[in-house]
Amino acid sequence: MKVVAFARKELGTGASRRQRNAGLTPGIVYGGTAAPVSISLDANALYYALKKEAFHSSILDLEVDGKVEKVLLRDFQMHAFKQQVLHADFQRVDANQKIHTKVPVHFVNAEISPAVKLSGGVIGHVTSELDISCLPADLPEFIEVDLANLEVGQSIHLADIKLPKGVSAVQHGGEENPTIATASVPAGTVSAEAAEGDAAAEGDADKK
């Protein structure tokens, strides 16, 4: 994915405000051996690019005044109530150095899992993204989690997921094998079944 930007010479709050009023979004490119560069991007194009999931988890070709660099979107700030991107940060990437980033999780085959198909269960998505480490060339747009064999009462953990070649998970907080998804029967269903059981028991007692 390609992003076109321009070197930004005027800095400061006032200059950034003028840029936004002119339909531009201020940003910065940093990392690697080169010095950080302040940039401006087309605000409208950036706003719609941010709506694409892949834009957040792909190596981007950032062209600044004709020079193209490989970068990764690291951060962006949105206006509190306007459809406006206030600022964007991009980090240069080296093809020979591993990067640490988050990628979205895509859950598939929930509708054919025993939990849903046979037990009327509900799949709970405990996380929507994973922290990973890999070389830029191995960066996946997303991680797929297959729910086809999930049954009620079971969970899928990090160790159950087959990560793409060259990709490793980065864990935090000391939890060795965090939960990714769970399958359970809705609380209302359990209550209804319990109520039916109590009613049947009362009926039997009345007959006696």
Rank of each mutant, 00 (worst) to 15 (best):
A183R: 07
G197C: 01
A192H: 11
G153E: 00
Q171P: 00
A169I: 08
V170T: 07
E196Q: 14
K165A: 11
P186T: 06
Q171R: 15
E196D: 15
T189Y: 10
V167S: 06
L158D: 01
T189H: 12
I180R: 03
N177H: 10
G173T: 05
K162T: 13
A181G: 00
S155N: 14
G153N: 04
S184H: 10
K165P: 00
H172K: 12
P186H: 09
Q171S: 08
S155V: 11
V152H: 07
G188L: 11
E196I: 02
Q171D: 00
E196N: 15
S155E: 15
S155H: 13
P186K: 13
L158I: 06
L163T: 06
I161W: 07
A195D: 13
T179C: 12
T182W: 08
S191W: 09
S184Q: 09
A159S: 15
I180Y: 03
N177Q: 11
S168N: 09
Q171T: 15
A159C: 13
V170K: 08
A183E: 02
L158Q: 12
V170D: 04
E175M: 14
G166F: 05
D160V: 02
G188W: 12
G173W: 14
I180N: 01
P186V: 03
V167M: 05
A192I: 10
A194G: 00
A194S: 09
V152G: 02
N177W: 13
G174E: 03
A181W: 05
V152Q: 03
S155P: 01
Q154I: 01
G188V: 09
S168M: 08
T182E: 02
A195S: 10
V170F: 06
E176K: 13
I161K: 11
E175F: 14
L158G: 06
T182S: 09
I161Y: 06
L163E: 03
P164C: 04
V152I: 08
L163N: 04
H157N: 14
V167L: 06
K165I: 02
K162R: 10
S191Q: 14
A195H: 08
T182G: 00
I180P: 01
E196A: 09
N177I: 06
N149S: 08
L150Q: 05
G173A: 06
A169R: 02
E151V: 01
T189I: 07
D160Y: 09
G174K: 05
V167W: 08
G174S: 02
A183I: 06
S155Y: 12
E196F: 01
T189C: 00
G174P: 07
A187M: 04
I161Q: 08
G197W: 02
V170S: 05
H172W: 14
E193N: 13
E151K: 15
A181L: 04
T179D: 05
L150V: 04
